[in-house]
Design a protein around this nucleic acid. Sequence first.
DNA 1: CTCGTAGTTTGACATCCATCGTACTACGAG
DNA 2: CTCGTAGTACGATGGATGTCAAACTACGAG
Lengths: 124, 124
Amino acid sequence: MPAQREHKQPSPSGRSLEHPDRADIRLEGVLHALSDPMRLQIVRDLAAVEGELNCSVFDLPVSKSTTTHHFRVLRENGVVQQIYRGTAKMNALRRDDLEALFPGLIGSVLTAASLQATRLEAAS
Amino acid sequence: MPAQREHKQPSPSGRSLEHPDRADIRLEGVLHALSDPMRLQIVRDLAAVEGELNCSVFDLPVSKSTTTHHFRVLRENGVVQQIYRGTAKMNALRRDDLEALFPGLIGSVLTAASLQATRLEAAS
DNA sequence: CTCGTAGTTTGACATCCATCGTACTACGAG
DNA sequence: CTCGTAGTACGATGGATGTCAAACTACGAG
């Protein structure tokens, strides 16, 4: 039932996606979003390219619908921004908003993730 | 079934509590532990006093058994250290371990939590 | 218009999670 | 030894979460 999209403002290039305003982003939500290995990997990849990536460049070991689910969690918790561009859906980290709300947080999470990856790798 | 405590070494003052080694602490686990409002509050209080606190000084709006549950999650994910001292159970942040593994992470989470608290308060 | 590609939606399912109440255990005080 | 206090263990329960497969939608290419 498509009865819940109240303010559906037709976006420039097609479907619309709901994003929380900056003021509605919650720390607990962001931490929860980042606490899943799959989603943390997505965020790391996104941060690494410093730009936009479409969904399909992520080679996640899960089905397409699960991937959709994870991107939705990231979007609903204010971690990523998604826009449709033709048939692709581009994703980008909401760096400015996150930095304004939680200064240094994303940076230390990314650093921590790198360090841990190195550490786990070294432990063969 | 109490068949999983393999190396149960009797601790100096009574019951034993299992803590993960530093090397076994995982970023995802820490983020998950911090993503619950109740547990984030506990960690903030713990950080504020820069020392040990027993469980009962936390005035959480949940039952005793739920409180036990949250402290266990924090302990099992390497966020806090707990030791029995008589009938009380003292809790402390594992600052050194967390700082060594994930430099700056705890600090930015605490800062973010403060900022958000202020922000939400200001929004009446 | 038709097709293929990219992603969504739905429904199902098993697991995990936060919460509770009640019964239980450990320890210190008296 | 007995009692009170601090916290644990044990189900139980309702709700969220991660996962999937299958059917569906939107868009560009031809």
